[in-house]
């Protein structure tokens, strides 16, 4: 299923000599070989990914024009083209919106992912999981725009006419769940969180499944041999053993939900304001950047503000991804988009 080189194969390989040097056999030992710039040529392509990252960061930094928006950049007011007064660019709404959608989605995706991974590793026989596991993988392959059109036209009205009214009716006493009645169209936070959960689910499930499968068979058997149930063995032996992988799943799943763009732009009912209650719309950094670039075209200050927001989004994504990838030395899954 996944192409995993054995660790030995990956760990200790001698790098090849640069191709411009003759094969080792025919070379007399020349310690004084002079450095030739041509020797560097084969190394250059290897720099592609690092160069791309650096280029992205540099370009965004340059695009900000080093505009200093001061403290108001972290403030709540986003007025790019006000009818009166000067424009204000505060991104607090979007930072809040990004976390407000990504964190609940992540918690759900972790809980469900953990459940699916445990079912798949501890409870279900192989012939059943062989049939069920691909569904989770497939969830990762669906393009976000397809999630978006499905979410906007089918899932959102379902939330708007069935789920949100029920929650509104019975839980309106809970702060944040009362107030303005939910829209019948249903676009808003709940749908966005629901679909973000689906989009983060394959990442969390696969990484948790991998870390549970990596628990040595000996340890599983030791737990079961002591008269622990499958559940107890999973909880007390396998999960502690695979904890780093599980935490890593949390970080990478969060990264996925946090950076999701098009689907959120379609189903969140994007407005640059804090949500007034559970059912309302708001905006995220990614969705705002995506929908506003067009309006900002040609407007230097607006573009500068968007670039700075892009840098904030990128910085958070990078940190989350670095931490998530550092936790696990070797990923077995490569065939899944976004992982």
């Amino acid at each position: 299923m996944s192409a995993t080189p054995t660790p030995e194969a990956v760990e200790s390989r001698e790098p090849l000599p640069p191709p411009s040097s003759p094969p080792a056999e025919t070379t007399p030992p020349r310690r004084t070989s002079r450095f030739r710039p041509a020797q560097l040529i084969p190394f250059i392509p290897a720099l592609v990914p690092a160069a791309l990252i650096v280029a992205v960061i540099a370009e965004l930094v340059v695009s900000t024009g080093f505009t200093n928006f001061g403290l108001s950049f972290w403030g709540p007011d986003w007025l790019p083209s006000p009818s009166v007064g000067t424009p204000t660019f505060g991104i607090l709404v979007f930072i809040t919106g990004s976390f407000l959608t990504a964190i609940p989605a992540l918690l759900l995706a972790m809980a469900i992912g953990l459940g699916i991974a445990i079912a798949s590793t501890s409870y279900l026989p192989r012939w059943i999981t062989r049939f069920l596991d691909p569904f989770v993988d497939l969830l990762a392959g669906i393009p976000s725009i397809v999630y978006g059109i499905w979410g906007y036209l089918l899932v959102a009205p379902f939330f708007g006419t069935v789920i949100n009214p029920v929650i509104y009716r019975y839980f309106s006493f809970v702060p944040g769940f009362g107030g303005k009645a939910p829209l019948a169209e249903g676009v808003g936070l709940p749908v966005a969180i629901f679909i973000l959960t689906l989009m983060a689910l394959p990442i969390t499930t696969l990484l948790i499944r991998d870390s549970l499968r990596a628990v040595p068979r000996d340890l599983w058997e030791a737990g079961l041999g002591l008269g622990a149930t499958r559940w107890e063995t999973t909880r007390k032996v396998a999960i502690p053993y695979g904890l780093r992988g599980i935490v890593s799943a949390g970080f990478l799943g969060f990264g996925r939900a946090f950076g999701e763009t098009v689907m959120v732009a379609m189903v969140l009912n994007v407005v640059p304001a804090f949500p007034i209650n559970f059912y309302s719309g708001t905006s995220t950094m990614a969705a705002e950047m995506f929908t506003q670039l067009d309006s900002a075209h040609g407007n230097g200050q607006f573009l500068a503000a968007l670039s700075e927001m892009a840098l904030v989004l990128l910085a958070i994504s990078l940190v989350v991804n670095i931490v998530g990838r550092r936790l696990v030395s070797h990923f077995a899954v490569y065939e899944v988009p976004g992982l």
Partner: peptide, 20 residues
Amino acid sequence: PVMVRRRIGMVFQRPTVFPT
């Protein structure tokens, strides 16, 4: 089987201590 394994214990070929 869980009850069986509580009454009939087992020790394996290699030591399999838990990392705790």
